[in-house]
Simulated assay, not measured.
Amino acid sequence: MRFHTRKWIKPEDLNANCTLFGGRLLAWITEEAALYSIIQLENPKIVLKYMSEINFISAPAQGDIVEIGIEAVRFGKSSITLKCEARNKMSHETIATVDQLILVNLGADGKPKAHGKTRVEFVKDRLASKDQD
């Protein structure tokens, strides 16, 4: 799993127990999943269709740095299925996991559209193949 995003926990991110508010973490995870999908499917029109149960494992506090890792586990006809782990950057302790996030590729009409992707592609490889054309 690749960890691309880091978030610094600030006072406005805390709940009544002075630990990270779960809703804030879910917003960060959803945003990271959308960005990952946009890059993989090469389309800015992506929506979250499904998120499996979230397993909250530890509670980070103000000042901690959260890393969010995303991994593609399946490519459907118009969807991509991801899994996610959020962890504490300093201790590498897992904060939460999500086994499935399903995001759907949309066409100009706002309806699901086939994306034609079957595997993870890295931008550097796309650029290299364009240079060879």
Rank of each mutant, 00 (worst) to 15 (best):
A61P: 00
M51F: 04
R87M: 11
A96S: 14
F75H: 04
E32D: 15
I39V: 14
S78Y: 11
A96W: 03
E12L: 05
D99L: 07
D99E: 14
K77E: 07
R74M: 09
I39K: 13
G107I: 07
L41G: 00
V104E: 03
E12C: 05
A86W: 03
C84D: 00
K45E: 12
T97V: 13
F75Q: 06
K77L: 13
P11Y: 03
A96H: 06
Q62Y: 10
V66Y: 00
S58F: 02
S58C: 06
I38C: 12
N55S: 11
G22M: 08
I38F: 09
I29W: 01
K45M: 15
K83C: 14
W28Y: 14
F56Q: 09
P11E: 04
T97W: 02
S37K: 08
I46V: 15
M51P: 05
A96N: 04
I68M: 10
I95C: 09
S79H: 07
I57N: 01
N17D: 09
V73F: 02
V47Y: 00
A61R: 11
F21G: 05
E32C: 14
E93T: 09
I102A: 11
I95R: 00
N55H: 13
L82C: 13
E93H: 13
E31R: 03
N88K: 07
E32A: 15
V98G: 06
Y36S: 14
L25P: 03
L26E: 03
I29Y: 02
M51H: 00
P11M: 01
I57H: 05
M51A: 13
L48Y: 02
E42F: 02
I80Q: 03
Q40N: 07
S91R: 13
D99Y: 00
S37G: 14
L14H: 05
E12S: 08
A108S: 12
T19H: 02
L14Q: 08
G69C: 07
I68Y: 03
E32Q: 15
S37P: 05
Q40C: 06
L48V: 14
I39A: 12
L20S: 03
V66I: 15
E42T: 11
A72K: 04
C84I: 14
F56P: 09
K111R: 14
D64Y: 06
A59Y: 12
W28V: 08
L101S: 01
L25N: 07
P44E: 04
N105D: 11
K77W: 08
N17I: 00
D13K: 02
D99A: 15
T81Q: 11
A16T: 14
T97E: 12
A33M: 10
G23L: 13
E31F: 01
V73L: 08
